[in-house]
Simulated scan of single mutants.
Amino acid sequence: MEITAFPGDWSTALVLVAHPDDPEYGMAAAIARWTAEGKVVTYALATSGEAGIAGMSPEQAGPLREDEQRASAAVVGVGEVEFWGFTDSELFNTPELRAKIAETVVRVNPDIVLSLYGGPEWAPGRPNQRDHMEFAAAVVDAYDSLPDPPRALFVNGPGSTHAVDVDGFVETAVASLAEHREYLSVLDPSTPVVDQARAQVEMTTGPIDGFPAAHAAGFTRLRPTD
Rank of each mutant, 00 (worst) to 15 (best):
G157S: 02
A178V: 06
A216E: 12
P20K: 00
P212K: 09
W122L: 09
A175H: 08
A99P: 00
P192R: 05
A173D: 05
G210K: 13
S160Y: 09
P120G: 04
D209A: 12
V106A: 12
G26C: 09
G77R: 05
A137H: 05
L45P: 11
A197M: 14
H180T: 11
F83M: 11
D131P: 11
R70G: 13
D131M: 07
L184H: 07
E82G: 15
P23K: 04
R223Y: 00
G38Y: 15
A197P: 03
P149W: 13
V186A: 10
L16A: 02
A123Q: 06
G168C: 14
F86A: 03
G8V: 13
H180R: 07
D67C: 10
F135K: 05
T161D: 02
N128K: 04
Y117H: 11
G157A: 04
Y143W: 12
T4P: 04
Q200E: 13
T94L: 01
T205E: 00
G119N: 08
A61N: 09
E90F: 03
A197C: 04
R130M: 06
Y25W: 07
A13W: 04
Q129P: 07
E82Y: 10
G125S: 05
E179A: 15
H215N: 15
I101A: 15
R98N: 00
D21F: 08
V76S: 10
L177V: 15
A99C: 00
D226I: 15
A137K: 08
L91T: 10
G159C: 01
E66R: 09
G125D: 14
V174D: 01
G55I: 06
N156Q: 13
D88F: 14
A74K: 08
W10A: 10
D165S: 00
T205M: 00
W84I: 08
V15T: 05
E37Q: 14
D209F: 10
D21G: 13
D188A: 15
E121M: 14
A197R: 09
F169I: 08
A13I: 02
M56E: 10
S190K: 12
V113S: 01
T220D: 02
G159Y: 10
A138W: 00
M203V: 05
D167F: 14
G49K: 08
R126D: 12
S72N: 06
A71N: 02
E68S: 09
R221D: 04
P63M: 07
V201H: 01
